[in-house]
Amino acid sequence: MSIKSYREAVNEAIVQEMRRDETVIIMGEDVKGGMGGSAGVDEAWGGVLGVTKGLVAEFGHDRVLDTPITESGFIGAAAGAAATGLRPVAELMFADFVGVCFDQIFNQAGKFRYMFGGKAVTPLTIRTMYGAGMRAASQHSQCLYPIFTHMPGLKVVLPSSAYEAKGLLIQAIRDDDPVVFFEHKMLYDTTEEVPDEPYTIPFGEANVTREGDDVTIVAFGRMVRFANKVADKLEAEGIGCTVVDPRTTSPLDGDTIIECVEDTGRLVVVDEASPRCNMATDISALVSANAFRALKAPIKMVTPPHTPVPFAPEIEDLYVPSPEKIEAAVREVVGYS
């Protein structure tokens, strides 16, 4: 056990799985050094944010593959490799780039098992960066996990901390179905105690990170940290918040969410994705259909506005759901009568 960053936790999960299973390979743009680099600087980068640094030195060029800037090509290749015996971990550098390779993901990888009558498995992991806050503008900052959650046949994972990232990524790599693993850019430098040994966290099992009697806050990815912060602050004032981190949006642990709302009677859902057809609307529908009688106040959704992610730093900060907005929402549902 030692303190590790989210970035180190992701790296360690990949390293330990590559050591354990030689069919695990990684591929993607600049995952080792960058195609534009001159000879001898293979390791200069290790991915744009250094997550896969050091891998090529241990596992060599046959298992750590830099690809051309052609998502349609290498994501498709990874799906094919998965269906024919490897366990690829492909990096879709920014989730925003999914537009050019979505057919390979949802029509091919996501449907192989179904279309081949269960005779094919596709142990593919797609790691991808998401989220606002990095001043990366509207084409590199989106939270597109609702689109993947919409597609049967894909598993969708949103680790909210370093401990979660390592256990969920090892689980993803060992899973026999395609998994899309979302890494929030603003979490890479967050740290916590992470075991040195490999371990797995099962999919479809929500983590209740705070327990309180008054409000249930369901939050995803980076928003879990914000929700915890709000819960800790309000606890001192006597407002008890239960915080639920579903960990995976597909499969979704609806039972835990419903049970928590039945206990607290109030729900705030915090989702960094665009507000229409996102996880907040999905969870709200789930709760209103299944725990209607438990509700003491209208459900409150904390989301960004329905706009592209702004580039101007001040407006980007206004765009992202903040602890202050979450706190205001909690106070509103608690004060409802």
Partner: peptide, 16 residues
């Protein structure tokens, strides 16, 4: 407590 259970769960998740 929550922490006691967390520690047990973390132990049980480790490979082996």
């Amino acid at each position: 407590t929550r922490d006691l259970l967390d520690d047990l769960l973390k132990f049980k998740r480790i490979d082996g």
